[in-house]
């Protein structure tokens, strides 16, 4: 089974370790993972800013890059939603390419959804002790019905889930919203952080890096330097040293 890894632009740029965790989880589950190295972005920042043309061009680029894959998997609900929902239902609705995009949508999955509902994994390599609290990112939850899948993976790793209040409430990221309307975005993140603190968990886990950066950024600004902010793939994959040395470099920081 050939699984195309759509790593997402944010993971590529900011937290490649999430990409390698995804790679490890897929390989451990027996997938042949391919990474088309010309990939850039699903187009969502443009799409949600009204730049329809460029988002169509990027969609076509994604279509081409993953044509030979049996599946496409991304460690993000929002990028998956863009490919699975918005490409066929909006950007190419009624276009000659609509069928191609429907086929792409049918084989594209958010990582936890793929592991649980397609691969039916029963174990994960990662080990975690203690409680985590989970933030449901909006697109994954409402466009893809990703709710229990990441929680199952976390439980397989040994984590307890300490649910926070309003775990389905938007954290305020919203892509460019977080910059255009930063003050409102910040308040939403602040509300999220208060709920995280009340949950009692010392680790907050999510499935979309955008939300995680937003939450971590607010926690740190509030002076909380200890609460860990993780993607579920990082916890489920555990130690990445089983992949070769170059991946470990991802976690070391030459300036820090």
């Amino acid at each position: 089974m050939k699984v195309g890894l759509f790593v997402t632009c944010l993971v590529d740029l900011a937290r490649p370790s999430i990409g390698f965790a995804t790679l490890k989880l897929l390989q451990d589950a027996g997938c042949e993972v391919i990474y088309p190295d010309t990939q850039t972005c699903c187009g969502q920042p443009g799409y949600n800013s009204g730049a329809r043309e460029v988002s169509r061009e990027l969609a076509l680029k994604v279509l081409k890059e993953f044509r030979d894959c049996d599946y496409v998997v991304a460690p993000s609900g929002s990028c998956t939603g863009q490919i699975k929902v918005h490409y066929p239902n909006d950007l190419f609705r009624g276009a000659p390419e609509q069928r191609d995009f429907e086929a792409l949508a049918a084989k594209t999955f958010e990582l936890s959804d793929f592991l649980i509902n397609v691969l039916n994994v029963q174990t994960v390599p990662g080990k975690f002790e203690g409680a985590v609290t989970y933030h449901d990112s909006c697109s994954g939850l409402r466009e893809l019905s990703v709710k229990m899948q990441p929680r199952y993976l976390l439980q397989m790793a040994g984590a307890e889930i300490a649910e926070m209040a309003d775990c389905e409430k938007c954290c305020g990221f919203g892509g460019t919203f977080s910059i255009k309307l930063g003050e409102i975005s910040t308040r939403m993140a602040e509300n999220k952080c208060a709920n995280i603190r009340s949950s009692g968990a010392s680790t907050i886990v999510g499935g979309d890096l955008g939300c995680l950066l937003n939450i971590e950024g607010r926690l740190r600004r509030e002076g909380d330097m200890t609460t860990q902010v993780k993607h579920f793939a990082e916890i489920a994959a555990g130690d990445l040293s089983s992949l070769d040395g170059s991946e470990r470099n991802a976690n070391t920081n030459e300036h820090g």
Partner: peptide, 17 residues
């Protein structure tokens, strides 16, 4: 708009690619 109310966690330093 971001950094007025939040820090930006720094990138790890190398891209996945």
């Amino acid at each position: 708009g971001w950094t007025q109310g939040r820090d930006m966690p720094a990138p790890e330093g190398r891209t996945f690619r």
